[in-house]
């Protein structure tokens, strides 16, 4: 399989094109995903290649649109529904949480809802409080959903194809700042398994778990720390539900220190889940320091660029926190 450098959004688009080519049941739905090409130009020219019957612009009806996608998935289609911003999923919580997540269970396994929701997420674009949130933990709390968060173009493609192959509803949180990031992506079809984390950088002094844009900040921090002799292991979380217990626990057993870095609001979030998971496991016995969470501020995402920057973890903060953790200052 040949690999070349393409962007995160190109990788997603490529995955959707592969799916549209290989499975007539696949349709795309979303607001302005046709001629406009999607708010972030992810669907771009797919309407020209596959036509409006397969690439359907929906009215501005998040609840209804998500519900139509759920009903379609229940009856034979495989819709990929794009929320223009993941924040707008709040309008569709009913269909995602009460319907998509629970139909299989409520119907005793007699039904399946293979829908994929694409969720552009995250701050850093100046879009302020209602267009910048990282809400993945909300959905991580719901049994019946699967929630993934690709950090690289390769995973953006592989996780989308895995989501389509999955018989259950999958939410893909795509960080808006990553859309233009380029990286090596294999050609053709392949899947990245849902529920498997990846050790992005091996190290022995501290485990840093991060996803999406935070992975790249954590890796950057780890390189700076390496110059001081601090050897951080960085785990790309990739999947929030199901979560990869074993990779994280095994790493903590090796390093004895854990830091979770995520953009969502710090309290009640992904960091809490991972911290608790370690605290409840045998890996607890290997801890040489308290667990640290670096999460978003307890505030909506602000508009002012300086405020926006400090509202979520940045490279320097990750570096400083990891340093003090390893030096035994915490």
């Amino acid at each position: 399989m040949t690999t070349r450098e393409i962007s995160y959004s190109e990788a997603i688009r490529e995955a959707m094109a592969i799916a549209l080519d290989s499975d007539p049941a696949v349709i795309l739905m979303g607001e302005d995903i046709g001629t406009y090409g999607g708010a972030f130009q992810v669907t771009l020219d797919l309407i020209d290649r596959y036509g409006p019957e397969r690439v359907m612009d929906t009215p501005i009806s998040e609840l209804g649109g998500a519900g139509v996608a759920v009903g379609a998935a229940l009856t034979g289609l495989k819709p990929i529904f794009e929320f223009q911003f993941s924040d707008f999923a709040a309008l569709a919580m009913e269909q995602i949480v009460n319907q998509a997540a629970k139909l299989r269970y409520m119907l005793g396994g007699e039904a399946s809802v293979p829908v994929v929701f694409r969720m552009p997420a995250g701050s850093g674009t100046g879009a302020a409080a209602q267009h910048s949130q990282s809400l993945e933990a909300w959905f991580g709390h719901v049994p019946g959903l699967k929630v993934v968060q690709p950090s690289t173009p390769e995973d953006a493609k592989g996780l989308l194809l895995a989501a389509l192959a999955d018989p259950d509803p999958v939410l893909i949180f795509e960080h808006k700042l990553l859309y233009k990031m380029k990286g090596p992506v294999p050609e053709g079809a392949y899947t990245t398994p849902i529920g498997k984390a990846r050790i992005a950088r091996a190290g022995r002094d501290v485990t840093i778990v991060a996803g999406a844009i935070m992975l790249h900040r954590a890796l950057e921090a780890a390189e700076k720390l390496a110059a001081e002799g601090i050897d951080a292991e960085v785990i790309d979380l990739r999947s929030i539900r199901p979560i990869d217990h074993e990779t994280i626990l095994a790493s903590v057993r090796r390093t004895g220190r854990l830091m979770v870095v995520y953009e969502g609001v710090k309290s009640y979030g992904v960091g809490a889940e991972i911290s608790a998971m370690v605290a409840e496991s045998d890996a607890f016995d290997y801890l040489e320091a308290p667990i640290l969470r670096l999460g978003g501020a307890e505030a909506p995402i602000p508009y002012n660029p300086d405020l926006e920057r400090v509202a979520v973890p940045q490279t320097d903060g990750i570096e400083a926190a990891a340093r003090s953790l390893v030096r035994g200052e915490v």
């Binding site: 290997y286 040489e288 320091a289 035994g328």
Partner: peptide, 24 residues
């Protein structure tokens, strides 16, 4: 004491109370 210290002390049969910590 850290959890790792507690585990090591438990397995080593040494009383944590008897040790001086070098951590914060």
């Amino acid at each position: 004491a850290t959890p790792a210290a507690r585990k090591a002390a438990r397995e080593g049969g040494i009383a944590l109370a008897s040790l001086t910590g070098s951590g914060p």
